[in-house]
Amino acid sequence: MTQVKSLADLRKIKDDLQGKMGLREKSNSPESLVQIRVAMATCGIASGAKQVMEFFMEELDKRNIQAVVTQTGCMGYCFAEPTVEITLPGQAPVVYGYVDTAKADSIIEKYIKNGELVEGIIPVNYETIQK
């Protein structure tokens, strides 16, 4: 273990741990960040939800967008899997169906960055996805 000799050394340790701690920090105040929930029940995983989730996690990070990506269970839209629910800070959640990585990319670029709606929204009764 090396010795910490300065503020800069401390900050380096801190930065190195961002990947490890960042998730926890963000979870402290999810309402002020973009929240993304990927349905990861059996049908979701079968239709590629896992890759979509990983895509979101990596790309949001690369594109410097502060977001919390979580997984949820069955949202009740098996026909449209993978489904993803996006909540921008202070806005009502929006659910997108048939999300693949290309669609995820346009969701990030258009909806998350600029608030423009992207095709493929599933009208939802929010109650059903509370869990």
Partner: peptide, 21 residues
């Protein structure tokens, strides 16, 4: 919130920065 047995996690939350300053 952090693992108390891991000094790095404390540092990641601005730990020892006050002392350094």
């Amino acid at each position: 919130f952090i693992d108390p047995e891991n000094i790095d996690e404390y540092i990641a939350r601005d730990g020892y920065e006050a002392l350094a300053k």
